[in-house]
């Protein structure tokens, strides 16, 4: 299967191309630069270097969130529009699941997280089985302190992975992966996870998984409740 994978859910930008299920090209940057400007040139470059023409693609896999709303939308819009134009399926992969894949040889619990401001994180719990990670606990938005306490209560070895590790180092301490590279999700992991997924819904219905309501909406709902 030929797959294009896209991740713009955090400051990490990733593009990967699989040919016949093998990694033909992969590019990762971790800089505070504009995804909207850089994503399309990156896709063109990786595709060209991998000698992959758009019409040869069988599927597009996109990090569907959680993460930066705008970032996720750039990846999802690009992925779904390409898929629609080419008449191929698009599949969403959790950006946390893709990050958890970096702990695929860790014996214990894997907790990837992305900073969500005000002491909160987008996070979830995964475990490795035979070199592949599976989800143990749903992705969620939670106060980081509360989450770390919850995970430690399980009394199992745990590995924390995060592109925002520096901001959260105190809480996770020695349980964070040592190699800095392991804190950046790889787009090839999105491609492999996306390859195994059943492309369920129509391309038109593919949308980000924000894991959080827009602020105006949650405030509005609150106001409605107070009125009742």
């Amino acid at each position: 299967m030929n797959v294009l994978a896209i991740d713009t859910s955090t400051y990490v930008m990733g593009v990967a191309v699989l040919r016949d299920g093998q990694v033909a090209g992969e590019m990762v940057t971790h800089v505070k630069k504009n995804h909207s400007i850089r994503l399309m040139p990156a896709i063109r470059m990786v595709m060209e270097e991998a000698d992959m023409k758009p019409e040869e693609l069988d599927r597009i896999a996109v990090a569907e969130g959680p993460g930066s709303y705008t970032g996720v939308r750039i990846g999802v819009t690009t992925g779904k529009t390409m898929a629609w134009a080419l008449g191929i399926p698009v599949v969403g992969v959790s950006s946390l699941e893709a990050l958890a894949a970096n702990g695929r040889y860790f014996d214990g619990l894997i907790s990837p997280f992305i900073d969500a401001r005000r002491g909160q994180v987008f996070t979830g719990l995964y475990r490795s089985r035979g070199g592949e990670v599976e989800r143990v606990d749903e992705d969620r938005l939670i106060l980081h302190e509360e989450w770390v306490t919850y995970v430690r209560e399980k009394e199992e070895p745990v590995l924390f992975l995060s592109p925002d590790l520096l901001k959260h180092k105190e809480l996770v301490g020695a349980d964070a992966a040592i190699n800095p590279a392991d804190h950046l999700g790889r787009p090839s992991a999105i491609a492999f996870a996306g390859m195994k997924k059943e492309p369920g819904e129509a391309v038109h219905l593919f949308a980000p998984n924000y894991l959080r309501m827009a602020e105006a909406e949650s405030k509005w709902l609150e106001a409605q409740k107070e009125r009742e």
């Binding site: 758009p54 939308r73 819009t77 992925g79």
Partner: peptide
Amino acid sequence: VGALLVGVNAAKALAFAKG
């Protein structure tokens, strides 16, 4: 900006995919 980004990225994806 957020609204514009959707149109711009859709247009770029379309232009690239169909040459």
